[in-house]
Nucleic acid binder design. Structure first.
Lengths: 217, 217
DNA sequence: TAGATTGTTAATCGATTAACAATC
DNA sequence: TAGATTGTTAATCGATTAACAATC
């Protein structure tokens, strides 16, 4: 950790993280045949304030709520989908086809949000040439070239912590601008690259912590 | 989605989500032999304000920074570890031993944070009796009893969305108070149960979104 | 000593909520 | 019509930052 580059952390306004929740909920409601929904109902499901819901929806969609009826679900969904960029097609790639790497490569949920993980890279010769979730696994040596050739800008790091910084450096050197980091290392990147650390154990630990703090009251 | 129960969402003060970052960073620094560190250095790595770092540390530890030298890494680490509850032992269990379930059961990182995923449950007869990551897989029918007998309060849902609510109901009925939900369903739970939705595709989508919004500037 | 760094108090900023008139 | 629900403006709240005296 000698270098003096910074880790750019992802910070986001809360509205951004609520919008996907509205989207999920509305899709669920839509499937159940619900045609219109009030901000109070949405707020109720998500345990937040109805005014907040209206503000968020007003900011992200063109749908006007109707007094007495609430919002039409269908246009809300399509506007949210566009706003959230779920109908744009984005390409990402993954390095480190271990347990977690396998899971992500095979995960069906990315497609719906317009994301395609196009390939995996690993140094294990047994994996090379195989397919995981329909995606080819390439040797590490091919990575630099592959990134540049396809102009990939989004990389996923699922290698052990020891190798994470090295993989990261290669990514950055070849034009990657956003990194989804599952290793436990704090990555050093130039200012113009964003890193989102996804630490599953920490995530669960935060939940157990919260459970405790609630139980204590 | 007929019931009128609410989904309790996890909301947390930002300090809470920064503390694990300090912890990771400090552990990394400590391994490199660093003995003391200034708030400015920490802030630099994490791209945040040094005053914020001092405030957070003052709130979570008893360590006083020394003018001109900064903070001692070792006591900071042990205080943070205690504050974050990483040295308390917590038990969780997991339902749905598919791809993601396998990954979580085998994940080495939980132990460090004091979390033990004690068992997995699945309805697939081929899995029953096997071990994944050293943890036994039991049939679904055993779940209710198992939860009660061991007094488990933290459940992990990695089943397909269609089954998620049903699994959730069983958990709640048997005393589970916190649910880590990897399905795409918004779960209905009583007010005193907390749900943390972990939607990996949405997580990546938020990152790509942010990348776009930065690129546009 | 001078300079780096701390902890604290006050100011700012942004996000959330309350109040309320408008409308179907 | 009356009541439910909207969108908007102002007030509140909490979190972040700025300013600065204290200290090694």
């Amino acid at each position: 950790m000698a270098r003096k580059q910074k880790t750019s952390l992802v910070v986001m306004t809360s509205s951004r993280s609520r919008l996907p929740l509205y989207y999920s909920l509305l899709r669920q409601l839509s499937q159940e045949g619900v045609k219109t929904v009030s901000s109070a109902t949405i707020a109720d499901y998500l345990n937040i304030n109805p005014v907040l819901v209206r503000k968020d929806l007003a900011g992200a969609t063109h749908v006007c709520g109707m007094p007495k009826l609430g919002f039409e679900v269908a246009p809300l969904l399509s506007d949210l989908k566009e706003y959230l960029g779920y109908d744009n097609y984005d390409e990402a790639f993954l390095v480190g086809v271990g347990n977690l790497g396998h899971t992500l490569l095979s995960h069906k949920g990315f497609k719906d949000l317009g994301i395609n993980i196009v390939a995996g890279f690993d140094k294990n010769p047994d994996l090379i040439g195989k397919k995981v979730g329909g995606k080819a696994i390439h040797p590490m040596e091919r990575m630099d070239d592959y990134i540049k050739r396809r102009g990939l800008r989004i990389g996923i790091i699922t290698v052990p912590s020891e190798c994470a910084q090295e993989v990261c450096d290669h990514m950055v050197a070849n034009g990657v601008r956003a990194i989804w980091n599952f290793s436990f290392t704090m990555l050093n990147v130039p200012e113009n690259v964003i890193v989102k650390n996804e630490n599953l154990p920490v995530s669960l630990a935060l939940l157990t912590q919260q459970l405790k703090s609630i139980s204590e009251q």
